[in-house]
Design a protein around this nucleic acid. Structure first.
Lengths: 227, 227
DNA sequence: GACATGCAAGAGCACTGCTCTCGTTGTGGC
DNA sequence: GCCACAACGAGAGCAGTGCTCTTGCATGTC
């Protein structure tokens, strides 16, 4: 019995160790990291890794989930230390960007182009929404305290698709506010991705944090946060 | 002499044909397309392809440049048919998105995560700016005709980095307007990427065009276009 | 103690990017 | 018109890849 626990514990540790080394490889090889190379680094045969992950894609899935959770956790903790909506917004945004700058390949894994031939399994969808939901909650709270600018309601067919989702996650908040928050989220992710993927080269080189801060505030305005 | 032209012409045709097949493979295998498979499809030895492209990365670079030009061209043509700034903005945006939906892997190649171990050569930077410049020009024209909302000037260190760039590409337009246009550009690219990369799954499924239209208008507001 | 299970290793398959060599063929200078 | 030269295609080969299968060993269970 305690032996069974031992087996399970060793297995869990090994799994964690493989992921850890894989994450290190991610930093140099990106999404096409080599399972064999990971195994080599661990001093084990490549075939042994398959005891822990059924395929390379499975390993990637594990890394993806961890990454979603890591940004989510970081952003949530940063937001928890703030006491008004705008501060929360800024704290979460800067935390997400700093995490992304520190772990660019993990960011690419989750918010970059999907790995070819890789279909994200269902396990990833919940962690994937964590940052978006944090921003949504921040705006929802702000809405309830009346610091969101009033705007005309949504029209169009997509509004009918968005309404139930808005109601499910943030009851009481108008779909219009959710749509604008999504727009803001797109802008923030775009800003981080463009910086990470090198598209800012030859333009903003020094004060990237300041530039992002500006972007974040623009996004907040977009979401309807009165500054 | 005409013989020399023949060689050159055959070479150009062959180069084009390789790119064409590679583009087809891109649709199924993404960025890790196989040079050997491309060669097989062309009925030639894989080594022969190296006469035309020094490496797989070189092939990718060619595809990247073509892709940048293709979206740029599409967006520019769509914008040319519009006669006021907002129409131009919307036409360019929708054209870009439609191109992206039709060529998702090419979009991923240029606006997705960079190919691991691949460093974009200098040849790509000019085509890469085409869409951004189109939006910039659209806003610049709108600014000159006085339909851009007045906003306080930029402050902060990044403003000093942005000012010369703004002056170089769109003289007379305040850096603040450029910064907001960049923000709008980020949002638009984010919206397209999120849709293409499957992050809209289980939310907006039907009226994605309408949803994007809303995003585009939000971006226009962000850029300062009065609607 | 016998049995069964979990695990690691190694060989092997089909594939990859890329290099090198070796004939062939088109091309510009004499 | 000829000839040296450069461009070209094919094939073999190298080191690496994901993944499978078989084998042997150690461990936990009855």
């Amino acid at each position: 019995m305690s032996a069974a626990n031992l087996r399970a514990r060793v297995r869990a540790e090994m799994t964690e160790e493989i992921k850890s080394v894989a994450r290190r490889h991610l930093a140099t090889d990106g999404a096409n990291l080599s399972l064999r190379a990971v195994a080599r680094d661990l001093g084990m045969a490549s075939s042994a890794v398959y005891r822990y992950f059924a395929s390379r894609d499975d390993l990637l899935t594990a890394l993806i989930i961890d990454a979603y959770d890591a940004v989510g956790e970081t952003a949530e903790q940063a937001a928890a230390g703030a006491d008004n909506p705008l501060e929360k917004w800024l704290a979460a945004g800067h935390a997400a960007r700093e995490w992304a700058v520190a772990n660019p390949h993990e960011w690419a894994l989750i918010y970059g182009s999907p790995v070819p031939g890789y279909a994200a399994p269902q396990d990833t969808v919940v962690p994937a929404t964590r940052v978006m939901l944090l921003l949504g909650r921040t705006i929802a709270e702000a809405y309830e305290s009346g610091v969101i600018v009033e705007r005309p309601p949504l029209t169009g067919r997509f509004a009918e698709e968005l309404a139930p989702i808005a109601a499910a996650y943030h009851p009481g908040v108008p779909p219009r506010v959710i749509a604008d928050t999504i727009a803001a989220f797109f802008q923030i992710c775009g800003a981080i991705s463009f910086e990470l993927f090198g598209q800012l080269k030859n333009s903003i080189e020094e004060d990237r944090r300041g530039f992002f801060d500006y972007q974040l505030r623009a996004a907040a305005t977009l979401a309807g946060l009165t500054l």
